[in-house]
């Protein structure tokens, strides 16, 4: 996983709004599996409305067959809306937890790395530390690459979460009066 970076061109990101019910994840995962696509990362949580959940699915695949999968996804009854977030079209974040071997010799370097990436130390052992860091997937990749040489005990990344970027229209006049 460390070698493959998110900027890899084969990755597609889908933001999928679904009904918040049991079994929905299985239906979606099964659709990808049936066609031999590997889900690269997946994040699911309820939305502002508890009847719905939003999934951010990152899939590693190229071209047309994926279009067919998306059409099939639409056919699943609990799937309400699918938005493909193209390159640069979304706000994307990811969180990483990583436990690093850090004894007296390198502890300073490791804490410094965490500070540079605005990460934090969330657990401390005699000769290891657990760090947390959030950022864009590229930043998380970079952080992971840099802490790795210190000796990784365990890594867990959340997988990407994403929302489409807001469309910002330049105001043609000052909106002093709000539409009622």
């Amino acid at each position: 996983m460390g070698q493959t970076s998110y900027s890899n061109s084969g990755h597609h990101i889908y933001s999928v709004l679904v009904e918040n019910k049991f079994g929905v994840l299985t239906r979606i995962a099964a659709l990808f599996a049936r066609r031999g696509f590997n889900i690269y990362s997946l994040a699911v949580s309820p939305t502002e409305d508890e009847n719905f959940s939003r999934m951010t699915i990152v899939v590693n695949a190229d071209g047309t067959p994926l279009e067919q999968v998306v059409k099939q996804l639409h056919k699943l009854i609990p799937v309400i809306k699918i938005t493909e977030i193209g390159n640069g079209e979304g706000i994307e974040r990811e969180l990483i937890l990583v436990t690093i071997e850090a004894d007296a010799n390198n502890r300073g370097m490791v804490t410094e790395l965490a500070a540079i990436f605005e990460g934090s130390i969330v657990d401390v052992g005699h000769d290891s530390l657990t760090l947390m860091m959030t950022g864009t997937p590229d930043q998380v990749d970079a952080f992971e690459d840099l802490v790795r040489p210190h000796g990784v005990v365990a890594i867990q990344r959340t997988g990407r979460i994403a929302l489409p970027k807001l469309v910002r229209e330049a105001p043609t006049k000052l909106r002093s009066v709000k539409a009622s």
Binding site: R27, A30, I77
Partner: peptide, 14 residues
């Protein structure tokens, strides 16, 4: 049953 028939139904319910 729901798992087995997921791929051969338009939709199913438990």
């Amino acid at each position: 049953t729901v798992g087995i028939t997921m791929g051969v139904t338009k939709h199913n319910w438990l």
